[in-house]
Design a binder for these strands. Structure first.
Length: 422
RNA sequence: GGAGACGUGGCUGAGUGGUCGAAAGCACCUCGCUGCUAAUGAGGCAGGGGAGAAAUCCUCUCGUGGGUUCAAAUCCCACCGUCUCCGCCA
């Protein structure tokens, strides 16, 4: 959510930003509703002032005079109830409109219609070359019996999967290496809830627009698609001490996604599944643009370094306007080489939001002058499993169908080759 | 699942219908005193919205949302949360 004062003073910038993101937001209507809100507020304040004044008089009056004053008061109250009703109606629309106003994308964000317009800003390594025709991870993992997709579908339905044996060891190894790598950066590991109440979803910007992408329980909670939701909710409605900054969390959680809009996409394998696990980086910092930019690069770089530890070719793209979420100012995606598809696939997404999320979540801090401010928030994937296994398996496959274990993972997997005859 | 208690400012905690946005203490800030520290004296110190150059003024907020009343932190209802006991349970 943006500050209404800021919106009113920067209408053209807001509109241009929404257009760049290809997000519909009726700013003109918002201004009209806001005018009405202000008018009714002032009107009501005046009436309340009158009411308070008369109420004090009643307290001091006696007998007939008192009865007379009370009677006069009832007339005033009738008028107030009407204003209150009007204000309530206006506020409902106001809130609704405010939640639709997107944050402004950074100048450096490229224009674009889809992720095809994302710009490559970095390339690391070169696509893995093979002396044979590389296979896809589904075929490889099934042959090695380290994943079972058929029974996954039988038991869990579409996009269901089982990991087995060394597939589990490999996922576990990634978690452990991630815990080591990212916590060494000063991030505080946290295990966070996935079953989360509505407030944090509104606060992070996943609701109200993303309703259809979320699983919901009969008790009203939602299953989070990312640990970001609970982690950002952690300090909801709190005032933080400035000495706490930067807050650096490394959240681990199961993640659930309905993939409602992706029915035909990636129907096989581990690229797009309904449930997975993820380590997520979450940052809260002082409300300064330079801080946001600094930590944005930092969290993205942390993940790049992790991928480099695994020696998997990747490139980093800066996402174009239409590929940005409602609250995001700028976003980098890291995409890993997937030989079976002969392309790069997204593994990580690093974004900053300025105070968009913290304003919604009511997270504040006192700056050096003692003023209350909304801190800036950022988040980035640290590493998701099992999606990362796709690139590991496919890039490290050998002609005989066995998988070389990336050196950095060997201590955690406990072997150098998966599938070796013994 | 059953029974009960509770939810007040950064913290502790008083306040059960009328200048209560709220005593007192702690913490914090300013000033004073003292060689430093400690101790001590005076004052200040919740947040949102609005008017104003400012001083200041108006308004809302005592978990949240409704209700009763001329008037609600205080009474009633619902919800959320916390705690205790019983039951169940990884």
């Amino acid at each position: 959510m943006l500050d209404i004062h800021f919106i009113r003073e920067n209408i053209d910038i807001i509109k241009a930003g929404a257009a760049k993101k290809h997000i519909d937001a009726d700013i003109d209507r918002l201004i009209i509703v806001d005018d009405e809100r202000k008018r009714l507020r002032q009107e009501l304040d005046q009436k309340r002032s009158e009411q308070n004044r008369r109420s004090n008089e009643i307290q001091r009056a006696n007998g007939k005079e008192r009865e007379k004053l009370i009677e006069a008061m009832q007339h005033l109250k009738a008028g107030m109830a009407e204003s209150e009703e009007q204000l309530k109606t206006v506020m409902v629309e106001w809130q609704k409109l405010m939640l639709t106003v997107p944050n402004i994308p950074d100048m450096s964000v490229p224009d674009g219609e889809s992720d095809a317009n994302n710009l490559e800003v970095k390339k690391w390594g070169t696509p893995t070359e093979f002396s044979f025709t590389p296979k896809g991870h589904v075929e490889l993992m099934t042959a090695l019996d380290i994943a079972d997709f058929e029974r996954g579908a039988k038991v869990a339905g579409f996009r269901g999967y089982f990991l087995k044996g060394d597939g589990v060891l490999l996922a576990n190894a990634v978690w452990q290496l991630a815990l080591k790598h990212f916590s060494a950066k000063g991030l505080m590991p946290m295990s966070v809830p996935s079953l989360v109440r509505r407030e944090s979803f509104l606060g992070t910007g996943y609701l109200p627009q993303g309703e259809e992408d979320l699983y919901k329980t009969q008790d009203g909670e939602y299953l989070a698609g990312t640990g970001e939701v609970a982690t950002m909710g952690y300090y909801m409605d709190e005032t933080l001490n400035i000495s706490a900054f930067p807050v650096r969390f490394l959240a681990f959680s199961p993640c659930f996604r309905r993939e409602a809009g992706a029915h035909g996409k990636d129907v096989r394998g581990l690229i797009r599944v309904h449930e997975f696990f993820k380590w997520e980086q979450v940052i809260l910092c002082k409300a300064e643009h330079d801080e946001s930019v600094h930590f944005h690069d930092w969290i993205n770089r942390n993940t790049e370094e992790f991928i480099e530890l695994l020696h998997i070719p990747y490139h980093t793209v800066v996402n174009c306007g239409s590929d940005l979420g409602l609250g995001q100012v700028k976003k980098y995606d890291i995409e890993l080489w997937v030989p079976g598809e002969n392309t790069y696939r997204e593994i990580s997404s690093a974004s900053y939001f300025h105070d968009f999320q913290t304003r919604r979540l009511n997270i504040r801090y006192r700056d050096a002058e003692g003023n209350l401010k909304f801190p800036h928030s950022l988040n980035s994937t640290a590493i998701p499993t099992p999606r990362i296994l796709v690139s590991i398996i496919e890039n490290y496959q050998q002609s005989d169908g066995t998988i070389k274990v990336p050196e950095a993972l060997v201590p955690y997997v406990g072997k150098t080759i998966i599938g070796a005859a013994r």
